[in-house]
């Protein structure tokens, strides 16, 4: 069994394998597939509770994954300020695998399109991959 504690490294290797076999387009196709078919729980949280659902979803996942971040829930906006991404830390600082150079891009393909579909504008700003710094800002689209 591949342990869930080893998954991030396997994920990194999967991106590299897909790029080798099918180019960057295949990696993006995979990321879109995850967004469309795997993130059903995020979709449910957001459909039920909007911005608050996002807060609940990421409280759970980031709570389990670790890292250092601040989540801010406003009336009309939700923000994750990631200071030290647990996943990027394993990839860029773990020394176990050679990092896939576009590793952090997966978040840009996983989350903003899904949130857009559900009525939110989302900006994924990748600040510094090696340091695991990024910011996700989500605003409700005007009615």
């Amino acid at each position: 069994m591949i342990s869930c504690t080893e998954f991030i490294w396997v994920y990194n290797e999967l991106f590299k394998y897909l790029e080798r076999r099918g180019g960057e387009g295949k990696v993006i196709e995979f990321w879109k597939g995850i967004s469309d078919q795997f993130l059903g729980n995020l979709r449910e949280y957001v459909r039920e509770e909007g911005l608050k659902g996002m807060y609940r979803y990421w409280s759970h996942t980031l709570g389990e994954e670790g890292g250092r971040h601040v989540m801010t829930l406003y009336d009309d906006m939700f923000v994750i300020d990631m200071h030290e991404c647990p996943s990027a830390k394993l990839i860029y600082q773990g020394g176990v695998v050679e990092p896939y150079e576009k590793y952090c891009e997966h978040c840009r393909w996983l989350y903003p399109p899904l949130l857009d579909e559900l009525g939110f504008d989302a900006d994924m700003d990748i600040i510094d991959c090696k340091k695991g710094r990024c910011r996700l800002t989500v605003r409700k689209k005007p009615e």
């Binding site: 591949i2 869930c4 504690t5 998954f7 991030i8 396997v10 994920y11 999967l14 394998y17 076999r21 099918g22 295949k26 995979f30 597939g33 995850i34 078919q37 795997f38 729980n41 996942t61 389990e64 994954e65 670790g66 647990p86």
Partner: peptide, 27 residues
Amino acid sequence: MANVHKDFHGALSFGLLFLEEHYGPDG
């Protein structure tokens, strides 16, 4: 202590399905 996020098992399963669909069992 390592962080344990078991939803990653589901993500692995999705990855294996994607690989099989695009590159077959050999891939």
